[in-house]
């Protein structure tokens, strides 16, 4: 459904953060990308979502070439990107945030109403807090608001970059639960995480990156049996 082929990318001319990385995301599955710090996971997400133009390689979405497309065009294609940093509009209310999620179909008042109700049903907590300023929510709630805002466009794929970084474990669990629930609703998910155990637990297919290259990849089952050895292997590098 979404695939990146031989991506070479970096922020300065001489240094390639990604050296021919390839990833395939299957429909209705959770694909996890893991790897140590600095392995290029976030850079890969930035390339896929148009925030960084790759030096070579290609990003394909349902057969169309996404490479070099502007990042603000992704929402229109049904791609929802959840960057690592906070992206809520802190001084607007929860509902205003959600409404801005409908930017791509802003002329269609009826659709905004129905999508808003749908999102409120998916995330009842958001309905409770709809008059609160987004900046007043806890970190975990802000993450869930970002996911909820992304759901306004009824995306086909959700690309999450370390959704639980900096969150307390109990709140992180809530975020993972949300992601799994969305998968059951038929959403395709590409998840980047440093939390290896969780990423493998929720993932159907796992890619491991290491210093900008594909190290290994495989299904969840293959990983669960070898996890111990793999982690040992990383620590020795």
């Amino acid at each position: 459904m979404l695939s990146a082929h031989n991506i070479v990318a970096g922020y300065v001319d001489e240094i390639d953060i990604l050296q021919k990385v390839s990833v395939d995301v299957e429909k209705n599955k959770i694909t996890s990308v893991i790897g140590p710090n600095g392995s290029g996971k976030s850079t890969l997400m930035r390339v896929i979502c148009g925030f960084l133009t790759p030096k070579s390689g290609q990003v394909l979405w349902d057969g169309t070439d996404l490479t070099g497309r502007p990042s603000h065009g992704m929402a229109e294609l049904g791609i929802c990107y959840l960057p690592q940093e906070r992206t809520v509009f802190a001084h607007l209310t929860v509902e205003q945030n959600l409404r801005l999620g409908a930017w791509t179909f802003r002329r269609d008042k009826a659709r905004i109403g129905t999508e808003l109700q749908r999102v409120y049903e998916l995330f009842p907590l958001m309905r409770e807090r709809r008059k609160s300023k987004a900046g007043d929510l806890s970190g975990g709630m802000q993450k869930i608001l970002e996911i909820a805002r992304g759901m306004m466009i009824k995306p086909q794929i959700l690309i999450c970059d370390e959704p639980t970084v900096g969150l307390a474990p109990i709140i992180a669990k809530e975020v993972y639960d949300t992601i799994e629930r969305l998968k059951l609703d038929g959403l395709t998910i590409l998840l980047v995480d440093q939390n290896v155990r969780e990423a493998i637990r929720v993932g159907d297919f796992v890619y491991v990156l290491e210093i900008g290259q594909n190290k290994i990849s495989g299904t969840k089952a293959e990983f669960e049996t070898n996890l111990h050895d793999m982690i040992k292997d990383w620590l020795q590098i």
């Binding site: 990042s71 603000h72 992704m74 990107y81 960057p83 940093e85 992206t87 809520v88 930017w103």
Partner: peptide
């Protein structure tokens, strides 16, 4: 509203398509 959103969070605005 898109102007306000841009003022508050550029990445967030881009993600929703602004």
């Amino acid at each position: 509203r898109a102007l306000m959103a841009t003022a508050q969070n550029r990445v967030g605005s881009t993600v929703v398509g602004i």
